[in-house]
Design a protein around this nucleic acid. Structure first.
Lengths: 188, 188, 188, 188
DNA sequence: TATGAATGAGGATTCATTCAT
DNA sequence: GATGAATGAATCCTCATTCAT
C-alpha cells in the first residue's frame, strides 16, 4: 500500500478512480480491466502490478474508500426526552464515508461478493446499534419497552440505509427527519 | 409463446428455470449462456432460438416471473380505526408474486438494467399507494395530517421492500407486524 | 424443377427472388439461409426442401436466371461495309438476359464459384464470337487482317462485359456506340 | 504502427500475409479469422490485438498493399505523333502496385465494401486520366476531337483494368499493345 | 409439402493475465 | 516501476442443416 502522493495523482490512485467510476456505472463484472486502464490512462500491464487479480481492485476500493466509523457505545449522544431530534442526529452522523459511486458499488456488489456484503452488514449493524443506543439514552426508564425500541431502531436503520435506493426507483425522497419524527411519536 | 405444459417441462421453461437459478446465485453478467444451457440440459444453440440475445433471458424472466398485482384504489381494504391491523393486511397482501430467486434478481439487476428497475419501481409505487390508501381509510377525518400519513406509508413500504435484503445482511428479521404496530402508534 | 405457377408466386419462386436480391446486395457468403427464408416469407425448413444445400440456391439462380443466348454462326447479322453500325447491333443484341441483380451476382461470385465463372466465361465467349463474326461479315476481303480483327472483337467484348462495373466505379458511362465507332475507324 | 523489419517478419506482417493469401483464394467472408491465425502461426487473440475488427484486416490490406501512383498531369509523357507507342507506355507504367493476390481482393471485394470500391475507382480514374493526357500530348492540334479522344482513353482504361479478369474467364489474353495499336489507328 | 424446434460446430470477439524488455 | 505484445480459454452469437410432426 504505497502512499506516495506525487504528481497530479499517482498511477495507483488513478486506477482506483477509474475502477470506482466504471464499477459504479456498469457493475464489476461488466467492466473490463482494459477499460479501467484506458480510463486511468495507464498501460494495461500496470493494473496487474498493483492489483494482481481483478477482484483485488474491488476489495481495495471497498477497504480504502468505504469507511465506516465505529462509534463506541459511550460516545453515542442523545437529546434526553426528545427521541425525534435524537434520531435526526443519528441520521446526520451517518457512519458511512463514501462517494455516491462507492455507495452504488457497495450495495450492488454486496449481493455476490462476500467481502462487500460483510462491509455493508457492518454498516447496517453500526447504524442500528447507534439508533438503539441513542433511543435508550433519550428515553430512559420504563417508557417504551425494549422490543418496541428495537423495532424502532431497525425501522430507522432500514430507512437510512435504503433511502438512496428508494429515491432512485421513484424519484420521491423519504425525509429522514420526518421519519425520525414519526418514530418518535410512536415511542412518545 | 408456447404455453404447452407437457411432460418434464418444455425446453423454453427449462431454460428460464436454469437462468433464474443461476442469475440469482451469481448475477446476470457472471452467468454464461453456456452454463444456462448445461443446467437446462439443452444444446447451447437452443437458447438463442428462444432468446436471440442474452439480455432477453433477463427480460423474459422479469416479465413472466415477476408479477405485480395492481389493486384498484377502491379495492384497498382497511380496518377502520385500527391502522396497525390495516398495515398488517397490506403486508400480507404484498403485491409481488415471485420466487425468492426472482426477488434477488429483481433487486440486484435493477441497478444496471432499466427494464428491471422499472419493474421494481412499479412495485414500490404499488406498495406505497396501497399503504397510503389503507391508512386513509383506517384513519378518516382529522387525525394525522396528510404529510405524516405519507411518511408513514413511505416508511412502511421501505421496510416491506427491503426487509429481505436487510435480513440477508445481518440475519436479524424486522417483523412487518411489529413495524405496523409502531407506525400505528405514531398515527394513533 | 416444378413449374407450377399457382397463386401470386409459389414458394420456390419466392425463395429464389429473395436469394437473388440478398445475394446481389451482400454477397452469397454474407447471406444466411434464415434471412432468405424471412424475406421470402417461408419457413426456414422449406428452403432445404427445394434446395438441400445452400449452394444450390446460387446454382439454381445462375442456371434459371442467367440466360445466355447462343446465336448460330450463320445467324449473326452485319451491315456490310459499316463496321460501326455492325458493332452497335452486336451491342444491342447482347446475349445476356438477366436482371441487374443477377448480373451483380454473376460477376461477384464468378471469382470463387466455378459454375458461376463458367457461365460468365461462356457469356464472354459468345459476345466475342459474335463481334468477330459480325466484323468478318461487315468487312469481307482483305481489309483488316485477322489478328487486328480479333483484337477489335476482344476490345469490344471487354467494353460490353465490364461497362456496368466501370460505371459503378466512376459514375461515368462508356457509350458502346461511341466505342463501336472508334473501333470501326481503326478497321476502316 | 510498428515498422520493425526484424528476423522472420513480425506478427502483424505475418497476419496480413496470411489474410492476403486467404482472402484472395476464398474471399473475405468465407475466410475465418481462426484460419488466418493458423496460417500466420499466431494465436487467435493476437489478430484482434492488431485489428480489433475483422474488417480492419481488409482495410489495412487495401491501404498498405494497394498503392496507386498518382502522376502529376505535367509528368505524363507521350511520343508525339505516335499514339500507339504512347498508349503502350501508359500500359507499361500501370499505376497499380499490388501483388496478384491483392489485385483479386481489390476487384472482388469492391462490390461489397465501399472503402475497397473507392480504391478501385481511384485506380480507374488515374488510368483514364493518364491515357487521356498522353493522347492529348501525342496528338496535339485538331486531329481527333475531344469526345473521341475521351472514348479512346476510356476504352483503353477498361481494357487495362479488366484484362486480368478477362483472361481468367477465357484463358485468352488481350494484348494491351495490340489494343494500343488499334486505338491509335482510330485516332490516326 | 410445410413447419419450426433442435443441434452443435464454428464465427467473431473479449478478457484476465503473463512476461520479456 | 512501466510497457504493450502475447496467450488461449471463454463469451455471445450465427448458421447450415436435420427431423419429427
Amino acid at each position: 500500500m504505497p502512499v506516495t502522493q506525487n504528481g497530479p495523482a499517482d498511477a495507483r490512485t488513478r486506477i482506483l478512480d477509474a475502477a470506482e467510476a466504471l464499477f459504479a456505472t456498469s457493475g464489476y463484472d461488466a467492466t473490463s480491466t482494459a477499460l479501467v486502464a484506458r480510463r486511468a490512462e495507464v498501460p494495461k500491464g500496470l493494473i496487474f502490478h498493483y492489483f494482481p487479480q481483478k477482484i483485488e481492485l474491488l476489495v481495495a476500493l471497498i477497504e480504502e474508500r468505504v469507511l465506516i466509523e465505529v462509534m463506541p457505545e459511550e460516545a453515542v449522544e442523545a437529546v434526553p426526552g426528545d427521541p425525534a431530534r435524537t434520531l435526526s442526529r443519528v441520521a446526520r452522523r451517518f457512519p458511512l464515508h463514501a462517494s455516491p459511486a462507492m455507495r452504488r458499488i457497495l450495495f450492488r456488489e454486496a449481493d455476490t461478493h462476500t467481502s462487500v456484503r460483510d462491509r455493508l452488514g457492518r454498516l447496517n449493524g453500526e447504524v442500528f446499534r447507534r439508533a438503539r443506543r441513542a433511543l435508550e439514552l433519550a428515553l430512559p426508564g420504563a417508557r417504551g419497552d425494549a422490543a418496541r425500541l428495537e423495532v424502532a431502531a431497525g425501522t430507522f436503520a432500514a430507512v437510512l440505509l435504503y433511502q438512496e435506493n428508494l429515491s432512485q426507483l421513484t424519484g420521491e425522497r423519504l425525509d429522514p427527519d420526518a421519519v425520525a419524527d414519526l418514530i418518535a411519536r410512536a415511542l412518545g
